[in-house]
Design a protein around this nucleic acid. Sequence first.
DNA 1: AATATATATTAGCAAACACTAATGTGATCT
DNA 2: AGATCACATTAGTGTTTGCTAATATATATT
Lengths: 124, 124
Amino acid sequence: MITTNSEVKAKFLRGFSDKTRLQILESLRESEKTVSQIVETLKGNQSNISQHLACLKGCGIIIGRQEGKYIYYSLRNEEIKQLLDLMQSVFVNVELEVAACEKNDELDCCQSNKEDVANESGGR
Amino acid sequence: MITTNSEVKAKFLRGFSDKTRLQILESLRESEKTVSQIVETLKGNQSNISQHLACLKGCGIIIGRQEGKYIYYSLRNEEIKQLLDLMQSVFVNVELEVAACEKNDELDCCQSNKEDVANESGGR
DNA sequence: AATATATATTAGCAAACACTAATGTGATCT
DNA sequence: AGATCACATTAGTGTTTGCTAATATATATT
């Protein structure tokens, strides 16, 4: 009888399901940063980063505090950091396991890149 | 120096970022199940569930074993279960925190449902 | 007040996603 | 062999997402 609203929970977790957002979170792991620091670190587009930050904030994963013209973003709390750590370690193990046990050496979620894979058959 | 390939990691985590998939995972938490058992539990569409199972399997989150004409799916390992647990508890706390500290009582990730929210102002 | 800096917001677009209905495949049973 | 059951796959469609470029807002500086 766990059953929280799966829809809202999915929205929360969607915050972690993007490459750029994961990079942002990783860069915030050590310390809070301003938007421009993040943009510089990731060598990303300002607008793009800003949107991802809004996403992460909306998901409750990070918080922002204003200081003059800067806005410092940081992970919401210690728990989020723990979650990131566990995600990381579980991921690494799964990756190894998948690579070891199956011919498939790349995680392939959902009905994505079918033709892509077919086309670049000579890859890597 | 954490830096795993964020792209692959994002694919892995995307497995958790959908309502239906979360429900499937929740139903697998207790014990392995056949596709039809899951379909019945979630009162879902067979094709849809089957696709989500393929997704979860591709992400390395679940595994399947065949037994006669049935295929039993289960969580890949204990770690995945732990991750689900932590996701759950972090989510619940964040949800409470967000609900308590801000006027916004619903997590709203990314640039989604702006007009929806505006329209159904009398919702819930 | 004018300008510069830091960040957010908007619009537009292509790609990815989730869903349904229909069809395919493989195992079991008669 | 033919029918049935369990599951997977394909095709089609509308929605959501992530990106870029352009514009807006707010704070700071001169």
